[in-house]
């Protein structure tokens, strides 16, 4: 997001006091509720992915620019995660998170988010 646009958004929050949280109450997302995977390996991946949802929203249906990753193509997500991990993609925080996972783990998490329609 261009800095100028970001500044305008923040200025609007400052003026109105309240854009963010109250309004989104109306836009609450209902995530699809997949049953847990029946084998422990798949279930572990599902739980890893659920940890991402604190920022990326239930089911990957986040509000906020670029944060909604549920249902995006797996290869696109994986390439981004690798880019963050190896420092080729600029980020504010994702480069710090991606380094906590192996490439294989990132690939499986990407697959999981891709499966959330």
């Amino acid at each position: 997001m261009p800095i100028r646009k970001a500044q305008l958004l923040v200025a609007r929050w400052a003026r109105t006091g309240a854009v963010g949280l109250a309004l989104t109450g109306a836009a609450m997302v209902h995530a699809q509720a997949p049953a847990p995977a029946s084998n422990v390996s798949d279930f572990q991946v599902q739980l890893w992915a659920s940890s991402c949802m604190s920022c990326h929203g239930p089911g990957g249906k986040a509000v906020g620019t670029g944060l909604a990753i549920g249902g995006k193509p797996a290869q696109e997500l994986y390439n981004k995660l690798l880019g963050y991990k190896n420092g080729k993609l600029p980020a504010t925080v994702m480069h710090q998170h991606a380094k906590g996972y192996s490439d294989e783990e990132l690939s499986r998490i990407a697959d999981h988010f891709a499966s959330l329609k």
């Binding site: 923040v10 963010g20 990326h56 239930p58 509000v63 906020g64 944060l67 504010t92 925080v93």
Partner: peptide
């Protein structure tokens, strides 16, 4: 400021 934007998005998403 960019992280201000992300902070507000974080608050909304974790509440959801």
């Amino acid at each position: 400021v960019i992280e201000g934007i992300y902070a507000m998005a974080w608050a909304t998403n974790i509440l959801n």
